[in-house]
Design a protein around this nucleic acid. Structure first.
Length: 482
DNA sequence: TTTTGAGTTGTTCGA
DNA sequence: GTCGAACAACTCAAA
């Protein structure tokens, strides 16, 4: 390499942390001056610019990052895209000779970054790193070099190839060089990420975006991980890690999580291995998106391109989105999503199963809604989850696996606590009827103040007949393949 | 090379 | 009430 550059640009994207940030660490090791920058360019995310809930999170996370940088003597430079123009402008203004970033894995981002590298490299050093995954999506492949389509062998291979021995997480810098006060930066408010009407109260009450909040969540989870195997399926309990949005924005990295769990607990402690498997699913999702870049909109299983979805589904889609299907656990989940920007994983499966199988609404509609409303919306994970539930993805649920939300509610929220929290109009129903109010006798409904069709909708589907109908439709595409 | 068994998260039905 | 079988077709790796 030539003489070390005096100034480096560190381009932050979905790696909004200072610790274990290889791009930042590399810049610090190579250059005297560091320019931390975030470029707002949602149009470069193709069909998937951040949704409303993600934008709220991003705003908060950028504020947190800037505060951290200032505490160390630096600051965050904010610019509008296009990224190419912003970077070229910054190179001109600062005379930087090095640009560093941590990789993204969405198809549109890969294409943009590749083009940028080719354009900038003749003039400056450009180096990218992995900060978001335990392994690169192209590293774990089958013996014949093709990508995996089944999770378990994928995860076994990743583990065998030395997961625990991967690089340890890097430390956070103790101080940073100052940024020239003359260098222009936008106020974060100018990015327009915050909602115009303040609907984010529920989000604020539920989350603390930023690196410190991520570590708070991890530490709280580590205290409870022994109960993970049991509690993770109970939507009324805080049994899951709730790390997904922090991981999505890179406020914490999976290497840090892996290291913290194995260092403090060891892999044989109850709950640890099961949780690491969930990190494995996150890896698998990125592996699939990398190798099958059309899957955010196209089914991986080509037979499903011809699936006979419902034709006029506007009304049922609307009822599902608003949490007014009349099926309590589904409505509770959809309202949890709307209020807090998040939904418990088990409930995500239930609402997705109802939408795609009982209501026969295309899974892409569900994926779009989740994209706009989830604070952890992630193209890889969201795509995998919806295709898996719909039965058209990798390692997908067998077509006959159609969840019964009443049975699931009784099994995983037996006392109805989750439903009483998010569907208060049913709060006074006795446990026996809270999962299926349409079965309650009139006097029970009256005593609980529930008037079906008035203050709570009657169920919009008959679970039994719509299940049978879904099975018939799957028969149709099985035949169409030939 | 071929065979074999297992594969995140389920439901229903009949014994 | 509990329990096993049936509900496809395909992927993957070990035997």
């Amino acid at each position: 390499m030539t003489e070390a550059p005096r100034t480096a640009i560190v381009w932050f994207r979905q790696d909004l942390r200072l610790a274990d940030n290889p791009a930042l660490a590399h810049a610090l090791a190579r250059a005297e001056r560091i320019i931390p920058v975030y470029i707002h360019a949602p149009q470069e995310q193709g069909e998937w610019p951040p949704g409303a809930a993600s934008r709220w999170w991003l705003h908060e996370s950028l504020v947190a990052l800037d505060t951290q940088l200032q505490a160390l003597g630096s600051r965050l430079i904010l610019r509008f895209g296009p990224s190419r123009d912003a970077l070229r402008g910054l190179l001109r203004e600062t005379g930087a000779g090095l640009v560093c970033w941590n990789r993204l894995y969405e198809p549109a981002a890969i294409a943009r970054d590749k083009a940028l590298k080719a354009e900038l490299r003749p003039h400056v050093e450009v180096t990218s790193f992995n900060a978001a995954l335990l392994g690169e999506p192209w590293e774990t492949v089958k013996g014949d070099g093709t990508p995996y389509r089944v999770f378990t062998p994928f995860w076994k291979t990743m583990n065998r190839e030395g997961l625990p021995e991967r690089r340890g997480p890097g430390p956070a810098p103790r101080a940073l060089p100052p940024v020239d006060t003359a260098l222009a930066s936008l106020p974060v408010e100018d990015l327009g990420l915050q909602p115009v009407i303040d609907w984010a109260g529920g989000l604020r009450a539920s989350w603390r975006p930023g690196e410190a909040g991520a570590w708070e969540a991890l530490e709280a989870f580590m205290d409870e991980i022994a109960g993970y195997d049991e509690a993770r399926d109970r939507p009324a309990m805080p049994g899951t890690s709730r790390l997904s949005p922090h991981l999505h924005f890179g406020e914490i990295g999976p290497v840090q999580v892996l290291h913290a769990l194995t260092h403090h607990h060891g892999r044989d402690r109850p709950g640890v291995e099961s949780y690491l498997r969930e990190l494995g699913w996150r890896e698998f999702a990125h592996h699939l998106l990398y190798h099958f870049p059309t899957t955010p909109t196209q089914p991986l299983d080509a037979r499903f391109a011809n699936f006979p979805w419902a034709r006029d589904y506007e009304a049922s889609l609307r009822a599902w989105q608003r949490g007014r299907t009349g099926i309590p656990i589904v409505d509770a989940g959809m309202r949890e999503l709307w209020q807090t920007g998040w939904m418990h994983n088990r409930v995500r499966m239930l609402v997705a199963s109802l939408l795609t199988k009982n209501l026969l609404v295309p899974w892409q509609e569900g994926a779009r809604w989740f994209w706009d409303t989830l604070v952890d919306a992630d193209l890889a994970s969201n795509t995998l989850g919806w295709q898996w539930t719909a039965g058209c993805g990798a390692d997908a649920a067998p077509y006959f696996r159609i969840f019964n939300p009443v049975t699931q509610g009784e099994r995983f929220d037996p006392k109805g606590e989750y439903m009483r929290r998010f569907v208060p109009e049913l709060a006074k129903l006795p446990d026996r009827y809270i999962h299926a109010p349409w079965l309650a006798p009139d006097h029970v409904l009256a005593a609980a103040g529930v008037r079906l069709g008035d203050n709570y909708p009657p169920s919009i589907v008959d679970l039994k007949t719509t299940r049978a109908r879904a099975l018939e439709r799957f028969e149709e595409i099985k035949q169409r393949k030939e």
